[in-house]
Design a protein around this nucleic acid. Structure first.
Length: 460
RNA sequence: GGUGCGGUAGCCAAGUGGUAAGGCCGAGCUCUGCAAAAGCUCUAUUCGGCGGUUCGAUUCCGCCCCGCACCUCCA
């Protein structure tokens, strides 16, 4: 069954298809800017895209999927961060790239096959800009920057349906200059392909395209160049968060199609934003979470992954700590159920309803519902472990990793626990119960097993 | 102002022109010295409001109310 996925360009569900003769599905996912730890909203997009990657592997075969996700390692934010910290740009971006990789691994996201960086593809970007200059789709500004001439591309605005929009007017726009370099542009909607060096850029600069000043690439061109290099001129799927729809992806289309003369992407997909407390996450609202913030609160990364998939990817998802608790509990159920499955011989395939839901426009909450419906209706003894694991693979749940991190108990709590265990084994239940109460007062719960015990911080 | 998305049980959240999946929480039960774990059972005559189409609407149409996001470099 083909994967049907919403296409942002046509605004309809379309099957995902590999268009090249080699049958390889070409998938480009816009990656993070590495200047700070990614927040959980960023990870919503990456987790959703990881499920797409997994579905593609199941659909086309593991070796017939080529997944590229870039790292933006030079832009205003990375440069500013490096300058503020007095460190080389490469050192700062390395630090946050490593952190991003660690977080992705904790969330059980498969690494992309290629993870190109903007600074690693300066030449490819310059080459593209030179083609655009020659074709008159771009022009050199007085300061040596290069801009894309939006008026030269008739189809500009198709993705974001610009022609149906009206520019914000009145007070909402007042006081918000279009861009700082408006003076340099022929038209307000033109965008930078190459930015001439400025003093605040420090030592961040490369030789520019013909005639242009030394400087650095604009943001949008990196994805066009890296996608071209690693996937070719025509790709099968291009994805990102909704906020990238305009202008980023609109600009990518313009650059790539004007340069290459062929359709850039056959399918566009955008996942919706994660909200916190009903609002978009932002530093000013103080509602921005990182994975480490949640780990510090005792939640497992897998619970975050579950939470992020508990809402439909094309709907805004309101993130709450309650939701994380729910996810943690649901994973616990799955883990217990998995442990009860026979090693082999099960004849019920619970992956089927799960995959069907996912193939239907990536309905992750529907898939979770189908999963639980299936396991509620079948005793573990009937269920095929292999197929259960296939469902876990598609969703990317690593049940082994799903245990919440256990905090170590302080020595005095350990001592109390030892005393209680001794009292219990001596069948002095009155003393044992009293000690259990003492432990609870100290904030700990003691879990008895046949041959021993463990300690857990008391849940609120 | 424009564009897009949404309002389903205490919370989260699928879904369909034919009478409401699932998760969490809560309650009861089984099991167990106790507790926990695990298992079982129960929990929306109703889908923002008002009209319309229809044999029948939560699902289609219209209007209204409310929320969120985007509108040039934020996943």
């Amino acid at each position: 069954m083909p994967i049907r996925l919403y296409d942002s360009l046509n605004r309809e569900l379309k099957p995902l298809e590999a268009h090249q003769k080699d049958g390889v599905f070409r998938f480009y996912n816009c990656g993070p800017t590495v200047y700070a730890p990614a927040h959980i909203g960023n990870f919503r997009t990456f987790v959703v895209n990881d499920v797409i990657r997994r579905l593609l592997e199941l659909e086309f075969g593991k070796d017939k999927v080529r997944h590229v996700r870039n790292l933006t390692d030079v832009d205003d934010k990375t440069i500013r961060r490096a300058r503020d910290e007095g460190r080389p740009l490469a050192e700062v971006t390395k630090q946050w790239t490593d952190k991003f990789h660690a977080d992705c691994a904790a969330l059980n996201c498969l690494p992309p096959h290629v993870e190109p960086t903007a600074t690693g593809h300066i030449k490819e970007q310059v080459d593209m800009i030179e083609v655009l200059l020659r074709k008159r789709h771009a022009y050199r500004a007085p300061d040596g920057s290069v801009y894309f001439r939006v008026s030269s591309f008739q189809e500009y605005g198709e993705l974001s349906h610009l022609q149906e929009r009206e520019l914000k007017t009145g007070s909402a726009l007042a006081g918000k200059p279009q861009t700082a370099d408006a003076d340099e542009k022929e038209d307000g909607s033109d965008f930078a392909l190459w930015k001439a060096w400025k003093p605040e850029d420090g030592d961040v600069k490369w030789p520019g395209p013909d005639d242009a000043a030394a400087g650095r690439p604009g943001w949008h061109i990196e994805c066009s160049a890296m996608s071209k290099k690693h996937l070719g001129d025509n790709i099968d799927l291009h994805t990102g968060g909704v906020d990238l729809l305009f202008p980023h992806h609109e600009n990518e289309i313009a650059q790539s199609e004007c340069c290459n003369g062929v359709t850039f992407a056959n399918h566009w997909y955008h996942s919706e934003h994660l909200l916190v407390d009903g609002k978009k996450m932002s530093k000013s609202l103080g509602n921005l979470y990182t994975l480490d913030d949640l780990k510090a609160k005792g939640f497992s990364p897998m619970a975050l992954r579950y939470s992020l998939l508990a809402g439909h990817p094309r709907k805004q998802l309101n993130f709450t700590l309650d939701g994380l608790h729910a996810a943690e509990s649901a994973l616990k159920t799955l883990r217990a159920y998995r442990a009860a499955l026979p090693a082999q011989g099960g004849t019920v395939f619970v992956d089927q309803p799960v995959l069907e839901a996912l193939q239907d426009d990536l309905n992750t909450p529907g898939a979770l519902g189908a999963l639980f419906t299936a396991i509620n209706h079948h005793k573990p003894a009937e269920v095929s472990a292999e197929h259960f694991d296939r469902a876990m693979f598609a969703l990317g749940f690593d049940l082994q990793a799903a245990e919440s991190p256990k905090a170590a108990a302080p020595a005095e709590v350990e001592a109390l626990a030892e005393k209680r265990w001794a009292a219990k084994t001596a069948k002095d239940f009155a003393a044992a119960d009293a000690l259990r109460k003492e432990l609870a007062t100290a904030g700990w719960s003691m879990l008895d097993r046949k041959d021993g015990y463990s300690l857990e911080p008391l849940k609120k």
